[in-house]
Design a protein around this nucleic acid. Structure first.
Lengths: 148, 148
DNA sequence: CCTTTTTATATCACCCTCTTATGAACGGAA
DNA sequence: TTCCGTTCATAAGAGGGTGATATAAAAAGG
């Protein structure tokens, strides 16, 4: 019967992800960027400039926290504030070249550490991971649309 | 130089994991337990009591941070300190019943949120995720043994 | 128009968790 | 015993989060 097997699978998936999440977390030990800072920079890199009020909710932090984060990022030259000519209240945040470089560096460090691990996998395990990528991507999309 | 396909695959895997990691991070928004607290409790649950000096390195924090974390956990009744009769310096940390309950609850909340997402996957995507679980588990093991 | 309300950021005061530096107590070997 | 290494605790400070609140601009209402 369908429901039972699905539930069992889901429990196994949850357990696996729980463990795997910790592994990923330790793969990027400590950098100058906090988790939220890195995530926000990636968002700005990926989908362009955003108003501050569009940023804090998706990142799961409060508005004051985002104001402070943008202030820090600006101070470090990784992002910049611009004003919207059509709305005097708004602050438009965009990533700088240094910000892109920081994201790229962080990405590369993680990719290299991961690559090191991937070398330890058997070919069929490696293939299984590659085969699961589209599904993981869709999970991310589903989570994103659920949040809205 | 490695074979080109492996490098390309690894880049794709790194990119996919980067995105997926953020998804998992937001799946357990905020609880009374910090990431490190939850991870430490899971470790105590999984592999039994540990001396404090065996705990902080695997969790990626400093020794004072672990001392403070154990103090907080003890204050909340989730873990307890015991002294080792063979070594007066040592502190043995173990999880309490309340600690197990907290871990279980957190696990269940995450599992339910994940289950909700998994319902949105096509059957073959779901199967691909299940098929990749052993590989992900091995990746975690590889990372753990690399740390030692 | 002028007032009122709503929206978008910023600031304030505070808490939690991490850090480094340091101290104290115990164990083991000369 | 004495000395040194190990183990844990404490102290002081930094970073990043929160809720409450202030300010300024836009929108809404009479």
């Amino acid at each position: 019967m369908q429901p039972a097997t699905t539930t069992d699978d889901d429990a196994a998936i949850a357990a696996g992800f729980e463990h795997f999440y910790e592994t990923l977390r330790r793969l990027t030990p400590r950098g100058p960027l906090s988790l939220t800072a890195a995530s926000t920079l990636r968002r700005l890199e990926r989908s362009g400039p955003h108003r501050l009020c569009e940023l804090y909710a998706p990142e799961g932090i409060s508005q004051p926290a985002m104001t402070q984060l943008v202030t820090r990022l600006e101070k470090e030259g990784l992002a910049e504030r611009t004003s919207d000519p059509n709305d005097g209240r708004a602050v438009v945040v965009s990533i700088t070249e240094a910000g892109r470089a920081a994201v790229a560096h962080r990405r590369q460090v993680r990719a290299e550490a991961l690559s090191e691990l991937l070398r330890g996998l058997a070919p069929e395990e490696h293939a299984a991971v590659v085969a699961a990528l589209p599904a993981l991507e869709r999970l991310s999309d589903l989570a994103a649309e659920q949040a809205s």
